[in-house]
Design a protein around this nucleic acid. Structure first.
Lengths: 210, 210
DNA sequence: AAATGTGAAGTTGTTCACAGCT
DNA sequence: AGCTGTGAACAACTTCACATTT
């Protein structure tokens, strides 16, 4: 069973789907049942045509003259993203950032559960009150297998990152959210998303120059 | 003195410039003086032609038959990004994530210094050993003016985000790194970069579906 | 010989304009 | 009348092919 072949769909479309989802959730919280592409696009920060084009990659979900059903659209997006059921995730590297992410609630709310964390010096964390168990690195294969984990968050130093990635991949991880500032080399069926805060700041810095 | 008009340069090029910078720094640490577009592109995870095209938006920096001088290229990129001198930054929202970022060393290394942080309940942090002073929100204008701060990191809850952004902008902030999961509305001369960890995970989730 | 710099071709993603439902 | 769905035009970005320099 290989990757599904849907290469026609732009990556950015998938990204925006998540943005739409956030907006729909807020609409639902306000008891709004129906929304036009114009209104939804507005809060999502895109053009209405783009929203409609994005959605039609997956089918027809709107009612002409009326708009989209908030509930129904929410469902179709979570289904598509694969977050309609809670997904287990592990985190590697319990430093400053890693610790913060362990306590971050945003993940749970969006369908992800950090089931365990790993660190070279797992013993150091025994006493601290952290919301998940911390294991040493050699427990990676077992924990990942036991919980059927497919995704990992890597908050390790740059020098360790490639090796950690290799370990994760051989343990069966196929999606990595990488905070280390290096380009990871992984098999092509493994997906990596990079988050690099220094790069984001540098970008801002460039664009605000006067 | 308004924004410089260089709209011909793709945004993605600016982003990659930061990536190249990271790679160049590692080369320099290994005492490598000269690098070909092929080698640099390889570690940066792009095609050599793309690297060369990116650089030529800003001039000619290579030597044909030889490659690029690591030191010189580093200098030209930091200069361009405006990070050749340390830039002051403030952080708003000293929760889990905010606290982690205050202790994160990556920023200092790349030319940014968090000079102060703000929180609704600044008093709570008086005793904790944090590397920067924490002020209540009403001190925003003064601190920003005193330190000539132009960029801010926002790690506040979604409900507070727009109001905080408004305050920052009126205090003179022109670049915002926003972690709150909403689309901020700001004047067009203010630049916002969004970091949304839940969205990144959702993206991964989509692409690893089998 | 080796590697850069670059116009032109190709590819991908966005927006328009309007046909088609409800 | 109002709003979605979509082929076609457009714009942005990437890659190619090769001329040019050391």
């Amino acid at each position: 069973m290989k990757k599904p072949n849907r290469p026609e769909i732009p990556r950015k479309t998938i990204y925006r789907l998540s943005v739409y989802l956030r907006c729909l959730q807020r609409l639902k919280a306000n008891d709004i049942r129906t929304v036009s592409s114009e209104a939804l696009a507005q809060v999502a920060g895109v053009k209405p045509t783009q929203l409609r084009k994005d959605l039609t990659y997956f089918g027809q979900f709107g009612t002409r003259g009326l708009g989209y059903d908030v509930q129904q659209l929410t469902l179709m997006i979570t289904d598509l993203l694969g977050t309609s059921s809670l997904q287990p995730v592990v985190l590697v590297g319990v430093g400053n950032l890693g610790t913060a992410l362990l306590s971050y609630r945003g993940f749970q709310e969006e369908g992800f559960e950090i089931v365990a964390a790993f660190d070279l010096e797992a013993r150091r964390f025994r006493d601290r009150k952290l919301p998940v168990p911390i294991y040493p690195m050699d427990k990676v294969p077992d924990v990942i297998a036991d919980h059927h984990v497919r995704m990992a968050i890597m908050t390790v130093p740059a020098v360790a990152a490639q090796e950690v990635a290799n370990n994760l991949v051989s343990a069966g991880i196929v999606g990595i959210l990488n905070f280390a500032p290096i380009v990871l080399v992984v098999p092509e069926d493994v997906m990596v998303s990079n988050v690099n805060l220094a790069i984001e700041l540098e970008n801002l810095s460039y664009f605000i120059q006067s």
